[in-house]
């Protein structure tokens, strides 16, 4: 474990917590009377969260952590896997099933056909992988899928008029975690002999590059202290 990877994992955990906080805020609005302006905004406007991206992430974790009970790495590793699995599936459940939260989900805008991402990633994983075993192919699939999982969310943000802070922070943290992982891979390459994982490195690089324009608009909105807006 190195500082880059720990920072990456904590950033990833933060992104999940921000999303859970956002869902909690929407839920707690229901109990209050309407005049609370925040509630009005949250319940009237779409939450800006893409269910498609959440479902893809749940699939990423499900296919990546198949070895959670067979290969014990460390207590930290197991606990983090359980957190990511539990949170991603419960977020999908909330947006799909919860009577209040699902009202804030705008399915007319979240139209990305994520099936078109799953199939090519699966085919690619069958062709390019480190070892042709069931677990390894699904693990590779999860890497390819995670690289593109943010696409429905980024497209939804382009369509969302006013992106609220929590959603913007969620996407930023999600992009930043993989950028930190790239530093971790560089560090491990130079400190651990024979540490070479091209598939992981290239997928991680592609994933981070997909956030490039979001990072640009995110930082310029911070600098100019204006609302985050992605060009359509």
């Amino acid at each position: 474990m190195n500082i880059f990877r720990l920072a990456g994992d904590m950033t990833h955990l933060m992104s999940v917590l921000v999303l859970l906080l956002k869902i909690h805020t929407i839920k707690s609005c229901a109990g209050k009377s309407y005049p609370c302006s925040l509630c009005f905004i949250l319940l009237e406007s779409s939450s800006g969260i893409s269910l498609k991206t959440q479902e893809l992430y749940a699939l990423v974790f499900a296919t990546r952590y198949l070895d959670i009970f067979t290969d014990f790495i460390s207590v930290y590793n197991t606990i983090m896997k359980l957190i990511f699995l539990g949170s991603s599936f419960s977020i999908v459940w909330y947006i799909r099933r919860h009577k209040i939260v699902r009202r804030s989900y705008d399915k007319d805008q979240d139209t990305f056909r994520h099936f078109f991402l799953v199939l090519p990633c699966l085919l690619l994983a069958l062709i390019i992988n480190e070892k042709f075993t069931f677990k390894e192919v699904l693990w590779t699939f999860s890497l390819y899928l995670e690289a593109v999982a943010i696409l429905p969310q980024l497209i939804l943000l382009q369509r969302t008029r006013n992106i609220d802070n929590l959603t913007g922070q969620y996407v930023f943290l999600l992009g930043a975690y993989r950028a930190l992982y790239i530093l971790n891979w560089i560090y491990r390459y130079f400190t651990e002999p024979h540490y070479v994982h091209w598939i992981t490195w290239i997928s991680g690089l592609v994933q981070t590059l997909l956030y490039a324009d979001f990072f640009y608009y995110y930082f310029s909105s911070l600098k100019n202290n204006v609302k985050l807006k992605l060009p359509a």
């Binding site: 990546r64 070895d67 290969d71 790495i73 590793n77 983090m80 896997k81 390894e136 971790n184 992981t200």
Partner: peptide
């Protein structure tokens, strides 16, 4: 048998 490449990262 080469050690299964246990993936130690999340």
């Amino acid at each position: 048998k080469e050690k299964e490449t246990a993936h130690d990262e999340l």
